[in-house]
Computed example of a mutant assay.
Amino acid sequence: MIDVQAIGPDDWKAWRDLRLAALQEAAFAFGSRYEDWADAPEDRWRQRLSEPGAYQVIASIDGTPAGMAGGFPDGDKAELVSMWVAPEGRGKGVGNALMRAVEDWARGTGATALELSVVPGNDPAHNLYLRHGYVDTDEPGDLMADGVRRELVMRKPL
């Protein structure tokens, strides 16, 4: 059974463990680097989970953490960030559960659209987003850590 729980600053250890696993396992998919977070003090982790208006969730399968995602308000839209599903959670509905949780949160904030960025070539993530109704935009995304590749921006009306 998949369980999705909203988390806050007191859950920083669980989020840290997932975030570091994500940055190691799928370094190509994130703008942040493992090296930037590996030795981060507790205060930095707590601060990341304390940003005003932000929403962070962890998905678990039978009590074992299997994925994470977050949402940030951005005017009349919201942004989906830090989405990652652990290898053992892939193909089991974890990504779908995380997407639904963040989409429900965004609707609750009054957002009219949800935006996200995905690395070109990350076909499993891109396909998940397409299945959830996101469309590619022509907007340039942020530069990745390599300073060369740009994220692909996708959007879904809510």
Rank of each mutant, 00 (worst) to 15 (best):
Q47P: 00
E25H: 13
R33L: 12
T64N: 12
V153F: 00
A69V: 04
P9H: 02
N96R: 14
Q24N: 06
M83F: 15
P124T: 06
R150N: 05
D138S: 12
K156I: 03
G133R: 09
A38Q: 15
P65G: 10
S82M: 13
D138K: 11
S82F: 04
G8T: 01
M154A: 07
Y34P: 00
M83A: 07
S117L: 03
S50C: 05
R16G: 06
P87N: 03
E139F: 02
D104N: 13
V57H: 06
E35F: 08
L98H: 02
L20Q: 04
E51R: 15
A111M: 08
R100Q: 10
V94S: 07
P65A: 12
D136H: 13
G71D: 04
A54R: 14
G141V: 12
F30D: 07
D62Y: 01
R155I: 15
I2V: 13
G121K: 09
L158M: 08
I58N: 02
D104W: 00
P9W: 01
G91E: 04
M83W: 06
V135H: 13
R150K: 12
Y129Q: 08
A69W: 04
A78M: 04
A125Q: 10
T137K: 05
V85C: 08
E25R: 04
V153N: 00
E42C: 08
P120W: 12
W15I: 02
D11Q: 02
D62S: 14
V85W: 03
D123S: 11
A97E: 02
A21H: 07
D104K: 04
T112M: 10
M1P: 10
D136F: 08
L23H: 01
R100W: 00
V4E: 11
E88L: 09
R19L: 10
D76L: 07
R107V: 14
A125G: 09
Q5H: 13
L49I: 08
M83I: 14
Y34F: 15
D123M: 09
G121W: 11
S32H: 09
D146Y: 12
A111P: 03
P73H: 13
Q47R: 15
E25P: 00
T64C: 10
L18A: 01
R107Q: 14
A111C: 06
R48G: 11
S50V: 06
A145E: 06
D74K: 15
S82N: 13
W105Q: 05
G31Y: 01
F72R: 15
L49M: 09
Y129F: 15
E35G: 03
A54N: 14
V102K: 00
H126Y: 15
P157Y: 12
G108Q: 11
S117I: 09
W37F: 06
V118N: 05
